[in-house]
Design a protein around this nucleic acid. Structure first.
Lengths: 239, 239
DNA sequence: AAGTGGTCTAGACCACCCG
DNA sequence: GGGTGGTCTAGACCACTTT
């Protein structure tokens, strides 16, 4: 009928209720039929909200029984990827700072032409940022962003949040990412820009980030001091 | 009407077409309206199939334009977690072997009571397995399985695939998992059971695995030699 | 048998993209 | 304006769980 997204409102209200423990773990949510009358909507709309809750790890639906509330509190956020460093620091409540080590605009390095799916004449930003938590340099982020999509980048923007700039200023919508995690030996640059222990490895997260027009606009290498690295994932089995 | 899952058939047929490159990357799928007549079904059923394709990283839907085929070939499988070692080895085509180092049944160790959400009197299997690839011990898996759900475990089963036993013999359905990845220093046991380089770290994957009745039945620590560790993830941004 | 979630339908209106 | 995907509805039948 309207253009609102009623099912999103319902999803958020129930998710809030689960986080607040107004819905207790191991208990059942009201049935779809009950929710239909509670929210005065159709069953399919309720089911959209419940499916979202299920995908995000809030509930498990059981045919013939109902929707079981899962324990989210025992596990920390974020539920899964695609969160910016700024968001992450705010969620975990840690005091963090970002130092822009360098910001340059040039043609794409040959080694990255394949990763970025672009011609060699394409202009890309290269940003290197040190991420400091509790006084120590913990993460080195090396970002490559296509100038075609992300014009006008400045040091101030990089020091705050590139994602905020992309979404709030440029009004682009970040849609999905492919991520690869490996353990590697630190390079000379890692040693210079991170406060590493001798003989320690680093966790490298390579991120390919896409807009909602299905265009790749960013490739990022996040190089983490291994003792501070932690990755959390929630996965449903292939249906 | 029927109890079949038409949308799953459609999903699998289109996914196959994308993997085969019968649908080319960056091209558009037929519109929902066209697919509706092609498959002689309703639009909502088509949309269910397309949403699955989108969640699994095959397509990106763009309002007003259509469904863009994404490049899956450039990225390796698995798309995301919840794959057994046996499945993984088969997918990657590497020659792998599993050695059962120990298999015991006892009450739950106090340190794991919280992780497993059980009483101290609960009986649990402890399984330690060395995973060998190309002649080297690469992974040490330490599994704890609730005997209440998984009775009758044997060394032969553990050497083959516990997941196969759970799903095919016991007819239980594995539904979802929460995973945590960290980098740690090897323990003495790691050094004994893995072929490690001096001074190297290991990647530890802690897995909490649930059945479709929302009951936790397994906690696993997978301890990986870091130079062979690789984790791949596909994440859509919070809608 | 009653209640629950799972699948499917036919139709409606809306928002977005492009020529 | 015509085509595309996004949301929503009201109703139907099926499969599963529980009483």
């Amino acid at each position: 009928m309207s253009t609102k997204r009623k099912y999103l409102d319902i999803y958020e209200e129930i998710a809030r209720g689960i986080r607040n423990e107004q819905f207790q773990p191991h208990a059942l949510l009201p049935s779809e039929h009950e929710l239909t009358s509670m929210y005065e909507t159709s069953r399919e709309t309720i089911r959209k909200a419940l499916n979202l809750l299920s995908e995000h790890g809030y509930i498990q639906k059981i045919q013939g029984k109902g929707s079981v509330v899962l324990e989210t509190g025992r596990f920390d956020f974020p539920v899964s990827g695609l969160v910016s460093f700024k968001e992450l620091a705010e969620q975990t409540g840690s005091n963090s700072k970002t130092y822009v080590h360098s910001l340059t605009l040039s043609t794409v390095p040959p080694a990255l032409q394949h990763a970025l799916e672009v011609q060699e004449t394409e202009q890309v930003w290269e940003v290197k940022r040190q991420r400091k938590m509790d006084g120590e340099n913990i993460v080195l982020d090396i970002d490559y962003l296509l100038e075609r999509w992300i014009p006008g980048l400045t040091e101030d923007i990089c020091a705050d949040s590139i994602y905020d700039y992309v979404e709030k200023k440029l009004k682009l919508v970040i849609s999905f990412a492919r991520k690869e995690i490996t353990i590697e030996k630190p390079t000379e640059e890692d040693r210079q820009l991170l406060d590493l222990y001798p003989d320690s490895s680093i966790a490298v997260v390579r991120n390919y980030v896409y807009l909602d027009n299905a265009e790749l606009f960013q490739y990022t290498e996040s190089r983490h001091r291994s003792d501070k690295f932690r990755f959390i994932d929630f996965a449903r089995r292939h249906r």
